[in-house]
């Protein structure tokens, strides 16, 4: 029995010896670490104290004031993709945007097209707005018809999207999310107004836009293999400004406004009119109402035109001759 107990005692004694030693070891180590750390912090503090006044940089604030801020307090504001996506999906509360296009005034100045392409980084042959030459029959007068996305209240394009990439917001705008779009082009097939385009090739400013955070309300950067379309310039509406095309038009073709306020503002003259009255007096109408898509774009018929119609095809021929 004693043979059995001895090793245990020995072990116990050894164990005790070990713990004490280990304890002193640990104590010493912790002490050393604490001393070094303290010294480091203290020297850091001394260094900070000894520095001259902190570096100040001049910063221009959003309200145009020049202020000085310590350099180490300056932080880059990161535009957050998730936030932009969320804002873009929600839309502006309490509004229902409408556009009215007065066909009597359009002279094919093409400023709306240019402004739109410029804002959305599109090539000259990529359109969110098409200006069509219309002629109902041989004996009737031809006229120009700018055609944007109709932002339907019953949008067939949204219904067919298999990945929820295109959607309708509470303010009526139909947007496209290129982060989700898989490029199946069902929506192009479904849209009766041919309002959508597809990026078959690398977008115009692919190089310049590289690394930019995707803004769903501007659809920039554009992406190859996805859809692009008229967005009613939702980024401008958020700032209380009229869409790019509307404010670029030199002939007063476009009116834009809020159906809830029963008011539309002309982009050229900036005069505001009652929407209901404008439509009533001028006989406003929708494109293809028989489809039940309920468009948010109204047209005023091309009556009382004060200028001569110039066929753009003839114009092009003349230019080629020169």
């Amino acid at each position: 029995m004693s043979n059995n107990t001895d090793p245990i005692n020995e072990n116990e004694a050894q164990g005790n010896e070990n713990t004490r030693r280990a304890f002193f070891k640990k104590f010493g180590l912790i002490g050393a670490v604490a001393a070094t750390g303290g010294a480091a912090i203290y020297s850091g503090y001394r260094y900070e104290e000894s520095k001259p006044d902190r570096d100040l940089v001049k910063v221009l604030t959003a309200d145009n004031r020049l202020v000085e801020v310590p350099r180490d307090q300056v932080k880059d504001v990161k535009v957050d993709l998730t936030r932009l996506q969320k804002l873009g999906r929600e839309g502006l509360k309490g509004h229902r945007w409408v556009m009215v296009i007065d066909l009597a005034k359009c002279r094919n100045a093409r400023q709306c097209v240019a402004a739109c392409q410029n804002a959305h980084h599109l090539r000259p042959y990529e359109y969110h707005i098409n200006t069509l030459v219309m002629q109902e029959s041989k004996s009737t007068a031809p006229y120009y018809m700018p055609k944007t996305c109709q932002h339907c209240d019953n949008p067939p394009c949204v219904a067919v999207c298999p990945v929820d990439a295109t959607f309708k917001r509470q303010d009526g705008i139909v947007l496209i999310d290129n982060e989700r779009c898989i490029g199946c082009r069902f929506c192009i097939a479904a849209c009766p107004y041919s309002a959508r385009m597809f990026h078959w090739e690398e977008p115009l400013m692919a190089e310049e836009d590289k690394g930019k955070v995707y803004n769903i309300e501007l659809n920039v950067p554009q992406r190859k293999g996805t859809i692009s379309k008229c967005l009613f310039s939702s980024d401008r509406l958020r700032e209380g400004k009229l869409p790019y095309c509307v404010s670029a038009c030199p002939n007063g073709v476009y009116y834009f406004g809020d159906e809830n306020q029963d008011a539309v503002t002309n982009g050229t003259t900036k005069e505001t009119h009652r929407l209901s009255e404008l439509l009533r007096v001028n006989g406003g109408y929708h494109l293809m109402p028989e489809l039940g898509t309920k468009p948010r774009v109204y047209y005023l018929p091309p009556k009382n035109r004060l200028f001569e119609f110039v066929d753009p095809r003839e114009q092009n021929k003349n230019q080629e001759k020169v």
């Binding site: 839309g91 509360k93 229902r96 209240d153 019953n154 949008p155 067939p156 949204v158 219904a159 929820d164 959607f167 309708k168 917001r169 509470q170 303010d171 009526g172 159906e259 809830n260 306020q261």
Partner: peptide, 17 residues
């Protein structure tokens, strides 16, 4: 007094799940 509900509120084929 004008209150018009959001345009994406109704149940429809085109709306979200």
């Amino acid at each position: 007094p004008t209150y018009k509900p959001p345009l994406n509120e109704q149940r429809a084929m085109w709306n979200v799940v």
